[in-house]
Design a protein around this nucleic acid. Structure first.
Lengths: 246, 246
DNA sequence: CCCTGTTAGCGTCGAGCGGACGAGAAGGAG
DNA sequence: CTCCTTCTCGTCCGCTCGACGCTAACAGGG
């Protein structure tokens, strides 16, 4: 930390914090997963005002001495039981239209979370119910605040991230097969992919997947057992995965 | 706007806004340009506490009834004279570590701006001087607040944006040549590019550039006059420009 | 045991893109 | 005109990707 000179210390002691306009700051989570082959988002039904009866992204107020990222991870663990180590978390952006909350001026910092397939958690305080909802079935008119806008930004960012990062694996368990990964891409992008070309591409991209050396149990439909992999060290894909048909 | 039911209206009337922790909200601008072949950022030298004598990104407080984007554009026009229509503006993200400002709890929403080559503006209120500084010559230890962190995020985002969007043209004048655009890529990425392959790539990507039909005046070093183009309608590049050597 | 149905994984072919680079076009200076 | 510059087009080659054939490795049924 920098050293603060005596004249600045005196200036700070005399500073009146009432000079600034007070804002409330919240975090909202766009928590995404792939469950049952559907690209889905976690939504809660609000049981308190404002927007009682509407559906919303999970979130809440930031504590006075809490870092933004810490507030997001705390909400994530409290409301959904997802541990930080089991998911990928990044900031999506700040949303602060003056009329976004009828109570007062609020700036919401939205976070994007990729989680593996999990059971829907139990509702927390202020929520009537919690559920995974496929993103293309969300009723935008029933979303509280500006959450339709936040959700759209999160979904778009997620689709783009799969192209140039290995984050699709964040939607899978620690040990995964190439087919698991392919089903993530198909669900998020909404397009079918050729299993043979996908296999060649993924196994040929350095740092994407690392073989475990064992095979996955055979699925309910039979077929040859698939090799198991875990996430590799790469943070960016070179070359990128390409969305078809454009 | 949604209709607010009577019970919610009553609840709102009884709501005490002192229940939330007050934050100050600021905007900070990572204003980038390419001047004299150098990838540079606009920095001010602070003349007021806190961090008096340090260098900082231009920015300031958000007004109580002001949208975040509007606050950023207002600061841009006030402090630098850059008009919104002449530049590209996007939100970079929120930065809100509890100790980032010694006065009080502040969340800063950073904005990334790409501007064409402009003369350095005159210093505004609270600034001793304003200057374009090449990004690889910035003295990180002299940067105020967490601006070293914000600047690094902006520079990294800008380098990535040039790959998959046509935003390099936002660093050029309205009418530009292929060589102008190439010099932007070379300055931002810090690598030399083959002029012939670059020309083929850029003119072959639909929607990137549209020919004006005229030629630019010959530069100081002579050579064949270059055709003039203006920005095309594309928002994404397909296929993307690729950074070499990786 | 063999046959069938399933998924996993490898190989092959051709179109297209990108890096390396040659060569002409179009200007200015001497 | 010669020589320099930069701009622009064209060629060659290797690599990648889409399309798709084929084999490998399981389960289950007769």
């Amino acid at each position: 930390m920098r050293r603060i000179a005596a004249d600045e210390r005196a200036w700070l002691a005399a500073y009146d914090p009432r000079a600034f306009a007070p804002f409330a700051v919240t975090v909202d989570m766009v928590l995404l997963t792939v469950t049952d082959g559907r690209f889905s988002v976690l939504l809660v039904e609000r049981d308190t005002h404002p927007f009682r009866g509407f559906i919303a992204l999970p979130g809440g107020f930031v504590e006075p001495e809490e870092d933004l990222d810490d507030a997001a991870v705390r909400r994530l663990e409290q409301e959904t039981g997802v541990r930080r180590s089991a998911a990928y978390v990044e900031q999506l952006g700040a949303f602060g239209a003056p009329d976004r909350d009828p109570r007062m001026r609020v700036v919401s910092v939205a976070y994007l979370v990729f989680a593996p397939d999990l059971p829907a958690p139990t509702p927390g305080a202020g929520a009537r119910s919690v559920a995974w909802v496929p993103v293309d079935e969300v009723d935008r008119d029933r979303l509280a605040f500006d959450h339709a806008h936040v959700l759209a930004a999160g979904v778009e960012r997620a689709r783009a991230k799969l192209e140039y990062t290995p984050l699709a694996a964040a939607f899978c368990d620690e040990e995964l097969t190439v087919a698991d990964l392919r089903r993530v891409y198909e669900a998020v992008w909404g397009v079918p992919l050729d299993p043979r070309n996908f296999h060649r591409k993924v196994t040929g991209t350095p740092g994407f997947l690392e073989p475990v050396g064992r095979a996955a149990p055979v699925g309910p439909e039979g077929g040859r057992p698939a090799a198991l992999y875990r996430r590799g060290p790469a943070r960016w894909l070179h070359p990128a995965m390409l969305r078809p048909s454009r």
